[in-house]
């Protein structure tokens, strides 16, 4: 398996696929304490103009984080992790998290990140700064 230190500019990171569902969104509300009804109550979410419940942005960000931590293992530590939520994520969507190395120095990797849904809409874009544990 390729070590973190061997990654070079433009190399792709391993992809993570994720399909959120209502149960997971409810569990996330309980675990995170974010009980905003736009995530839990379909009628409320419709009245708020969202067309139905949406997943927490932070739940999508957690999937991106998992993609990074699975890939890094103990060879790297996250020093910065920034994302922009660009599109709503709904139960049943298929989300693909991916990324590539934009810059690297001896012990730092800068990764560009994005998550697309099954309609190829970008739901999240972002950046991670990783310190390689040499």
């Amino acid at each position: 398996m390729k070590r973190l230190v061997q990654y070079e500019v433009s190399d792709r990171l391993p992809v993570r696929k994720w399909v959120p569902n209502d149960i997971q969104i409810r569990q996330y509300a309980e675990a995170s304490g974010d009980f905003n009804p736009i995530h839990l109550d379909d009628n409320y979410a419709r009245l708020a103009g969202l067309g139905g419940v949406i997943a927490h942005g932070m739940l999508t960000m957690a999937q991106m984080a998992a993609m990074l931590t699975d890939w890094m293992g103990k060879e790297g530590e996250l020093s910065k992790f920034n994302v922009r939520f660009e599109h709503m994520v709904r139960p049943g969507d298929t989300i693909k998290c991916s990324g590539y190395i934009r810059e690297r120095s001896e012990n730092t990797l800068v990764c560009d990140l994005e998550a697309l849904n099954h309609k190829e809409e970008r739901v999240l874009s972002g950046l991670a700064l990783i310190t390689i544990q040499l």
Partner: peptide, 13 residues
Amino acid sequence: ATGIPFDERVPPT
């Protein structure tokens, strides 16, 4: 709840 593995390290988010 998030469906992610974890060890002694606290998950980033």
